[in-house]
């Protein structure tokens, strides 16, 4: 390779590395701001802002979804399998909202630790399969759980 070409090649590699390092530093510095939502553990640890609204994401706990007496407000818990936070939301929930589903809620923490949401978005997972496969997976999972329970019981 001629000297001039070599020089240009190194110059381009230098640009790419330089920009890459700069971007990595910037993204690292703003890491927390790039998070779309806080997890229930972070909220429990007091890392989430209490003065202004933020987003909270997690899985809807099984059996936690209840309608309050006014008929419009839904109350449910979200968990990250470690800590759990209760959410109250008044309005229409997205189609994918169900127990066990991931959601992201936007709102504010009330003094009693309940998160009052003004928007609830459903998060779907990266799995795609036909209903019969999902049903078969669930059946074999339930069977496995039942067997494990029987073995530990005996």
């Amino acid at each position: 390779m001629k000297a001039a070409r070599k020089k240009r090649l190194y110059l381009i590699l230098l640009i790419v590395t330089g920009v890459g390092v700069a971007a990595a530093l910037a993204l690292n510095a703003f890491n927390q701001n790039l998070m779309f939502f806080y997890s229930p553990s972070e909220v429990s640890a007091g890392k989430a802002p209490s003065a202004y609204p933020f987003r909270l994401g997690g899985l809807v706990t099984d059996g936690s979804v209840k309608r309050l007496a006014n008929g419009l407000t839904t109350r449910f818990d979200v968990t990250d399998m470690d800590k759990t936070v209760s959410i109250e939301y008044t309005g229409i929930l997205p189609d994918l909202f169900r127990e066990g589903q991931g959601i992201v809620a936007h709102g504010k923490l009330r003094a009693d630790g309940v998160f009052v949401a003004d928007e609830v978005l459903a998060k779907h997972d990266e799995k795609y399969m036909p209903p019969e496969v999902a049903a078969a997976l669930k059946a074999s999972h339930d069977k496995g759980v039942a067997e494990a329970a029987r073995e530990s019981g005996s």
Binding site: N31, L34, G57, L121, H124, D125, E126, M129
Partner: peptide, 20 residues
């Protein structure tokens, strides 16, 4: 790297793609 509303990779991840 970050929490996003968009789900994670299905096909271009390590291991088998989680799609039928």
């Amino acid at each position: 790297w970050w929490n996003t509303l968009h789900q994670g990779p299905t096909v271009t991840k390590f291991g088998a793609p989680s799609i039928d």
